[in-house]
Structure formats: C-alpha cells, structure tokens
Amino acid sequence: MTDGSVTHILDAINQPVSFEELLSPVAAAWDATREVVISLTPTPLERQPSAYVQTVWRERPRGEVSEVKVRALCNDSSVVLRLDWAAGEPRRSINDVNVYADGCAVLFPANGEAAELDTMGSPEKPVAAWHWRAGDEQPFSVTATGIGSVKRIVEHPIKVGARWGEGRWRVALGSPLPTDTVGLARGGAVPVAFAVWCGAADDRGGLKSYSQQFHQLRLQ
C-alpha cells in the first residue's frame, strides 16, 4: 500500500539476535519481517518559518523521495527500524560548502500522545526523533516542540547501521528498551512517523519528504 491516508501497523518481531546484528541493514533477520511501504510527500512550504525559504523554494524542488520501505525488529532489550529508500545519487557526507548529506528520521510523540506532525510537535505535545545523517559518526536523538525548535540530546543510546547499494539506502536505526525519550517498551505500541532528506536535491532541515501522518509501531 502506498496510500498516504492509510495508517499502517508496523510489527517488530522479536528475534533472538544481538542489538549489533539488528543494526546491520543487510542482516538475514530482516528477510523474515514484513515490509511496509510508507508514502512520503514534501513538507508544506507554508509551514517553513523563514520568509527566505518560503519565497525561494517556490521555484526549487524539495522532498522528492516519494516512499520509504520500513521494517522493524526487536529483541528482549532493543528495537530497530530499517528504512529503505531510493537514492540514485547518494550524498554520503557533507564534503563541500554546497553539498547536503542524505538522511532519515523516525519520529515519535514524546509522551505517547498523538502530536501534530506538520509542526514537529508543540510545547504541550513534544515529539522525539532518531535522526541519521550520512557521514556522521553517530545518529542524533532529538526533541522538538514546534518548527525550528529541534534540540539535539547530547547523551543518548541511539545506534545506526547504514549501507548504500544498488541505488538505495538501507538504514537501521535502533535504541535499547525501554527507549529514553519515547516511552516504548516490550509489548508496547507507539505512533511513529518517517522523514527522508535527499542531499542531491539540497534537502535540509524542514525541507524533506515526510509521512504526513503517524503510523503504529507494535513491539512483540
């Protein structure tokens, strides 16, 4: 299914493999999981908080990645989501002033309650995300209470494994359980949303492809 209005259930099957192995995006364990195809759309320009971005990006492309394939796995002490999307011209790092790196993020309501996705949460209903950017040694764990408010958490347990091949990124983002900012534990379920940045299209910050709505992540 690629219908943007459908809420997908993403079941994280419990596998007796280590966290490190789950973080390998090509581990055999992923073959046994069900793939969910999430459709993505560009973030709304009118939500961008800068007049410069709102004006200039009327004429520029943004958020051109149209779907991301997602799988989930867990073991007794950790959960990992694997995002898989087309990237014909990968940007593996920020290696020039005018180069933007590819990236992806998995976003949750920070307190488990549905939060507004278009605004990246609000002061009352914050969101938390695991954010990977190609070329960085570590992923970021971030929180946000509205557009432009993303704050990186310095100490966090989020890990990543990423691989590009055959025109696609496969990125496994995971956290020990219970998760520190999301309130996700064994047997639980949380809303989850997705975003992808295409470096070749100069995506950055709020300019990205996103899932428009929350889906449901269930842990076995």
């Binding site: 004006t55 020039d96 002033v97 005018n98």
Partner: peptide, 14 residues
C-alpha cells in the same frame, strides 16, 4: 523587500 534566491558557492569557489 522580497528575499532573493542565493547560490551556495563550493569550496573551490571560496
């Protein structure tokens, strides 16, 4: 009063 699009020069250009 309208923001104008700018280009990002690469490091060889700097």
């Amino acid at each position: 009063g309208v923001p104008q699009a700018g280009e990002l020069p690469g490091k060889r250009q700097w």
